[in-house]
């Protein structure tokens, strides 16, 4: 799954630690999600969307391989 977390965070001048505080998770978790190595659960994805004031679809999208399979 791809995401725009890093861009959205940069637009707001937030560090990974700032975002982690807002989401009540560890900085390592934010880093793993940003790099696409960990896909968050649905509740955490909703929380991320709420923090940025966007919908989940505006932040996360299926990667090319997943889209090709559909």
């Amino acid at each position: 799954m791809k995401n725009r977390l890093k861009v959205l965070r940069a637009e707001r001048n937030w560090s990974q630690a700032d975002l982690a505080d807002r989401l009540d998770v560890s900085r390592q978790s934010v880093n793993a999600i940003e790099t696409g190595k960990y896909d968050p659960s649905l509740p955490l994805a909703f929380k991320i969307a709420a923090v940025f004031g966007l919908s989940i679809e505006q932040i996360f999208s299926a990667d090319e391989a997943a889209q090709a399979a559909e």
């Binding site: 009540d24 998770v25 560890s26 390592q28 978790s29 793993a32 960990y38 968050p40 659960s41 955490l44």
Partner: peptide, 8 residues
């Protein structure tokens, strides 16, 4: 007490 990623 850990978050979901740390539990993973």
């Amino acid at each position: 007490g850990l978050d979901e990623f740390q539990r993973r």
